[in-house]
Amino acid sequence: MGFVKEFKEFAFKGNVIDLAVAVIIGGAFGKIIDSLVKDIITPVLLNPVLNAVGADNIAKLNWHGIAYGNFVSAVINFLCITLVLFILIKIANKAKKEEAPTPPAGPSNEEKLLMEIRDLLKK
């Protein structure tokens, strides 16, 4: 019975459940970012640049039988996703800073009372 109890405590600890939720939300968020890059950023920004260079389908690029196009495509995709995440995190951090409550100007009544008691004890 001890093993079952230990497993139950482990499995239902807040940390394990929080981690599971974070993984699920992270997977869903990853799909959103992937769609943003593939469906919006690539057609609007990347395709015109590739067409101007003459690399309509970057994945098919090769040099003497070495198909480096997929690698270049993966690197560009990584950089786009990283840039989008960086911008989103900067926006989220900026929003967090604005929401932070300001500390009270002076000591609270409780702190004043404790300071008075401290001063009386020193005397």
Rank of each mutant, 00 (worst) to 15 (best):
D18Q: 14
V21W: 14
A22P: 01
I24H: 04
K31C: 04
I32W: 02
I32Q: 04
I33M: 02
D34N: 10
D34E: 14
S35I: 08
S35K: 03
I40M: 12
V44D: 02
L45T: 00
N47P: 00
P48V: 00
P48W: 00
P48A: 01
V49P: 00
A52D: 01
G54N: 08
A55K: 13
N57C: 07
N57E: 10
L61A: 15
L61K: 04
N62F: 04
W63N: 05
A67K: 08
G69S: 06
G69P: 06
G69N: 09
N70T: 11
F71P: 03
V72N: 09
S73C: 07
A74E: 05
V75M: 12
I76P: 01
F78M: 11
L79W: 13
T82S: 14
T82H: 04
V84E: 00
L85A: 11
L88A: 09
A92K: 02
K94Y: 10
K94L: 07
A95G: 04
E98V: 06
E99N: 10
A100N: 05
P101R: 11
T102I: 14
P103W: 10
P104G: 14
A105E: 13
G106D: 11
G106Q: 09
S108I: 06
E111S: 14
K112S: 05
L113N: 09
E116I: 12
E116H: 03
I117F: 13
I117W: 15
R118S: 06
D119Y: 06
